[in-house]
Design a protein around this nucleic acid. Sequence first.
DNA 1: CTTTAGCGTTTAAACGATTAAATAGCGCTG
DNA 2: CAGCGCTATTTAATCGTTTAAACGCTAAAG
Lengths: 344, 344
Amino acid sequence: MKKKTVLKDIAEKVGVSIATVSYVLSKDKGSKVSTEMSEKIKKVARELDYQPNQIAKSLKSGKTFTIGLVVTDISNPFFANIARIIEDEAAKMGFTVVFSSSDEKSEKSWGLLKFLINRQVDGFIIVPAEGSEDQIKYLKELHIPFILIDRHFPEIPSNYVVIDNFKAAYSAVERLISTGNKKIGVIAYGNSLIHMKERIRGAVEAMENYGLPFKDEWLKKIDFANIQTDAMKAMEDLLVVDPPVTAIFFASNSLAIHGLKKIDQLGLKVPQDVAIVSFDQGEAFDFYYSPITYVQQPLNELGKQAVNILIHEISGDQSGPGQRTLSTKLVIRESCGKERLRED
Amino acid sequence: MKKKTVLKDIAEKVGVSIATVSYVLSKDKGSKVSTEMSEKIKKVARELDYQPNQIAKSLKSGKTFTIGLVVTDISNPFFANIARIIEDEAAKMGFTVVFSSSDEKSEKSWGLLKFLINRQVDGFIIVPAEGSEDQIKYLKELHIPFILIDRHFPEIPSNYVVIDNFKAAYSAVERLISTGNKKIGVIAYGNSLIHMKERIRGAVEAMENYGLPFKDEWLKKIDFANIQTDAMKAMEDLLVVDPPVTAIFFASNSLAIHGLKKIDQLGLKVPQDVAIVSFDQGEAFDFYYSPITYVQQPLNELGKQAVNILIHEISGDQSGPGQRTLSTKLVIRESCGKERLRED
DNA sequence: CTTTAGCGTTTAAACGATTAAATAGCGCTG
DNA sequence: CAGCGCTATTTAATCGTTTAAACGCTAAAG
């Protein structure tokens, strides 16, 4: 079995001390080691295929060049896409990414955080779960760099990259109004996180600004853990009543997927019977017989900014919180209907 | 700023040596430390919220309790799903997962491997890219535990978990034959990896066993890097010719997605004009107006087995290669047509 | 001819933990 | 009361690397 080469091996072979080898291999430029020695050491290092042990380096330096990524669920395409962008961007700067899924549960997220802190990750990119404020404060106390994405806690100053959820939801619902809908259902997650609240607020405010009073029974709040059953029930409550809503705004990808299944089951046609706008992209949205209109998030921008702000802070930048609110784009297709007055 | 507690802090506070603290905190059971001392140390450790520095432990022990996961592309739902299963299973056994995407390029995969080896990961779960045989041999030489998934190199003995690609493809195409198709196109990746070869072999052999000689022009090989353009062209070559094929077997998820877009563009109807069977699950498959029949892989089984075999080997099990070939299930829906004789 | 400066290299401490080996303190025994 | 045997604790080496400080040597300066 080939043994891993360490500094000592090179030192012995060349006949110098470990320190000399280290100086040559880690500093080089402007080092005080003689050129001939330097050459000899580099040659031997190459021969033995020397690769520095990063664990030892980390122990010495306290840096691991590793980022912890905590998302809701890595198997969700939305987060998988972000993960890919983060991976690439981090790799560019010499960082590794370790990921974990919190399932939107704050206890699980606590465990993951502690676990990764002990492994000395240099910083975190976090999609914070509801009720995880303490964890965020804990990271601040320990001065561990981190950045929140997708959502944040307005009362806790921190780095974050999010989108303008209010505006995104507002323009999505505005679109449904412009295609003639007056009764619009809103399906969102029933948590207290700001991004959801803002999406709901945007939807409601759009309606009211157009003189369409919003009725509370049009807002359906879904429990993340019971998305399947909750979503089905919510759809029935909106559509199998008199009068039914004529349009639905889904506040996320997965909510829309479940909702559309129910619409198909009920035998309703999109957009004739019910018009649809959703948040987030989805392969399935393209293939639905009536392609889904959706709010497109700037994932690339989001991932890159997050990595850059984080690594800046890891590298000792003290310039205070980096906060970005990115804007979204409404991709209009058939599911929201044509711009006209719906008669009902 | 709160400082991280280290053994020394506890030792000083209690007034004993570092070693004693270490014995209490790491051995405890059957240690020779007196009970009173032991209690005092544990109490102080709790007060100071001591968390052992895993980096230091790793340097000493040579183990990092980290698994490197190298997939083709983490943003591909197929791999994202596997990643989630691997994450959960690994966490159960106290392991962290770091992931990276090779983009099916062996040079990129080399880089990732070296990078992760220097970070001393304990083992790898790898979806090997074409031409990465050397890397696999290298891991064997260094005695770094690893397991291949999705594909493997038959000429290199190693751990692997794969599916029975031949059988899966055979039964997929068999289904298309039983619904009356005699001219069946096959769209696959044009690489030399065994899983693709087997899928193609399965498809061809199915046809020939049913007395339908396979024509070479029905087999279209797509370059992973140019999937979009290649797939479009392939579809035209199969469908916009005389005579066209009446059915298509897609050897992967993404190939099917691109192919279906082209079918829609051409204004063809599934399954009347062209019947479809694909590999792998996909959200979009459920929403296509004619839900897609597909080969379902046992992702759960695949991920769990991979982790277990790998961790077994990491823990020093010498029982030779763990090799699993799992079987798949054909999920039959509308896109392959009804069982009857197609007249043409 | 002594002092100083500079160069190239080595020594040794440090990072935080583990652990084999040494040691100190104590009670017993012959 | 010397000497042995325990036991509880400490010392010190170790993992692989970095890096400040020390060192030995030559050559220029005073």
